[in-house]
């Protein structure tokens, strides 16, 4: 049995063409219009809410650049907040609210995208739906856990380089990815504007933004919350690569950037 499955290649798991995949997003958006716009609203709201919690001396967008360059040094600590406390940046009702909102987005995508729209084209979609539902549940549970830890909540939010990188990733997922998709459509053709992948309703930007949120909020068991989004980003990149879509590299680069910043930060704390 194992040998049977090993005889398959990556292309065997992508049983549709690039045209069909792009049409899937168009028909998905048309079917659930205007519900897909709700997700964009959640994404923009997240950017606004997170910005309100940032009290570091360097405001965005400069903080994002500093985050990439100096992430491990934790320079954006607010005076009065202990260095160790900054690793809990983002705690509070806002963070819990965002975790729940993101979790609901994952559950929505599990049902509306993977189960209802994607699974008819690819049997793997049923498993993707289960994974997305699980991730949604984990995010919601992590919010509950967060709200129960009043004693550990710091007075304010101090952002380090990793947090700023996470913020940049959310901004890219909510605003940058649709713009990039639109430009790719103009350049490469084959993409309609209403079929653009949007945060909250499409898996790719939602997975990227979730990684960004975890990088900021850092709830307990954060490692558990980054597994499925990371796996999805790699799976989606592989799908696009098989289909010959040059945008496959975008998600890989975004995930790698965040991983590098997180790795550098972890190394500096040893």
């Amino acid at each position: 049995m194992v040998m049977d499955w090993l005889s398959y290649s990556l292309a065997d798991f992508v049983p549709f063409s690039h045209v069909t995949y792009m049409r899937l997003f168009e028909r998905y958006a048309a079917r659930f219009w205007p519900a897909v716009l709700v997700g964009v609203g959640v994404g923009l709201g997240a950017l606004w809410l997170l910005r309100r919690t940032a009290r570091g001396p360097v405001g965005w967008p400069w903080g994002i650049g500093l985050g990439l360059l100096n992430g491990p040094r934790n320079r954006l600590t607010e005076p009065g907040v202990e260095r160790g406390a900054t690793s809990r940046a983002g705690y509070g009702p806002a963070a819990a609210l965002l975790l729940v909102a993101f979790g609901v987005c994952w559950v929505w995508i599990a049902w509306a995208f993977h189960w209802y729209s994607y699974a008819p084209l690819n049997w793997v979609g049923a498993y993707f739906a289960a994974a997305f539902a699980l991730q949604g549940l984990l995010l919601i549970l992590s919010a509950v856990g967060l709200s129960m830890r009043e004693d550990e909540r710091p007075a304010g939010v101090a952002w380090d380089g990793l947090a700023w990188s996470g913020y940049g990733l959310i901004a890219f997922a909510v605003i940058g990815m649709p713009l990039l998709g639109y430009m790719a459509g103009l350049w490469l053709g084959g993409r309609a504007w209403f079929g653009l992948a949007l945060f909250g309703s499409s898996p790719d930007p939602t997975a990227l933004a979730t990684l960004g949120l975890i990088a900021i909020v850092r709830p307990r068991f954060a490692w558990m919350l980054v597994i499925l989004p990371t796996l999805w980003c790699l799976t989606s990149a592989a799908t696009l690569a098989v289909l010959g879509d040059p945008l496959w590299a975008v998600q890989v680069l975004a995930v790698l950037t965040l991983a590098l910043v997180a790795g550098a930060r972890a190394a500096s704390r040893r």
């Binding site: 049983p15 063409s17 028909r27 084209l121």
Partner: peptide, 13 residues
């Protein structure tokens, strides 16, 4: 029909 006929319920396809 591998790939070519996997178009779901897309009326255009």
């Amino acid at each position: 029909t591998w790939i070519t006929f996997n178009v779901g319920d897309d009326p255009r396809a």
